[in-house]
Computed example of a mutant assay.
Amino acid sequence: MAPTILVPTQARSWLSAAPHVARLSATTSSAVLLSRRDLSVNDAQKVTLGIIAAYIVAIALLWNLPYVRWVLWPFKMLVIAFHEFGHAITCVLTGGHVKSISLDPREGGVTHMQGGRNAVTLPAGYLGSSLIGALLTFAGFNINASKIASIAVGACFLLTLWWGRRDWLTIGTVLAAVGLLVACWFIAHAEALRFVVLFIGVMSSLYSVWDICDDLILRKVNSSDASVFAQRYGGSSQCWGVIWSIISLGFMACGMVAGIAAFPQSAAQQREDSQHFIPTKF
């Protein structure tokens, strides 16, 4: 007769749980390996990251050089429209009413609002435009994602156009932007659209940071979203400007990392996929 072996209750629970622990360990290991694989950068993504770096350098130079800075003027007006859209949409979402949006040829803009929560609507200009920039940067890693992003941007522009329908510069900026996006749909199965969406995304993200630094940290402009926020909720405009700049850069970094993780397709695969997703070509 075989001897009876008594196993303590705690030991029995560990033994019975062992297969589940092993499976959990294997699943965790697979998830770690998957995450590592997803964040590995392939050749197509290296090209995209290189283009982003080139955009950053080009925008930084054109932003500060006399005379040639006017090259960026149409895109500055475009991201200012994003800025004002951020104010407007958060005003509506927090129960307010948007009376109008207008853009200024001297690279400014204003949103006339009634009601809403100022604690949300005031930072929503800078943070909203930088969030849009991060989403466009994310979409810029893939042609089909850029197509979807351009449709969403078009919808945002139509809302902006509705609120700014009495301002000729707003109307002209929005129509020109929509025309550019539509035209890029028909170039090499929208491959050109990806680079335009990527540029607008980088520009929108950096505009928020540089505009905050330019107005609040370097020149210390008295009237700004951050100064009004500081007057109502405490702190200084420079402090809030730094905080919003850090958040904006964080948005941009998250957009890039998410783009690397979500779109591992090669350039050839992207072109192939694009030919079957709302196909267009001249």
Rank of each mutant, 00 (worst) to 15 (best):
L15E: 04
L15S: 03
S16K: 12
S16A: 11
S16F: 08
A17G: 11
P19V: 05
H20L: 15
H20S: 11
A22R: 08
R23T: 10
R23D: 14
L24P: 05
S30E: 13
A31W: 06
V32M: 07
S35L: 13
S35R: 09
R36S: 14
D38Y: 08
D38N: 11
D38F: 04
L39P: 06
L39G: 06
S40I: 10
V41F: 07
V41G: 09
D43M: 09
D43S: 11
D43T: 14
A44Q: 13
A44W: 14
V47F: 10
V47Q: 10
T48I: 14
G50S: 13
I52G: 03
Y55C: 15
V57A: 15
V57D: 12
A58C: 14
A60M: 03
L61C: 14
N64G: 06
N64T: 15
L65P: 03
V68R: 00
V68W: 01
R69E: 12
R69W: 05
W70S: 12
V71M: 00
P74I: 01
P74M: 06
F75G: 04
F75I: 07
F75K: 01
M77C: 10
M77I: 09
I80G: 01
A81H: 00
F85A: 15
G86E: 02
I89K: 09
T90C: 15
T90Q: 13
T90P: 14
C91Q: 13
C91S: 13
G96I: 04
V98C: 00
K99P: 02
I101C: 04
S102C: 00
S102F: 02
E107F: 09
E107K: 08
E107W: 07
G108W: 10
G109W: 00
V110A: 06
H112T: 13
G115A: 01
G115Q: 03
N118M: 06
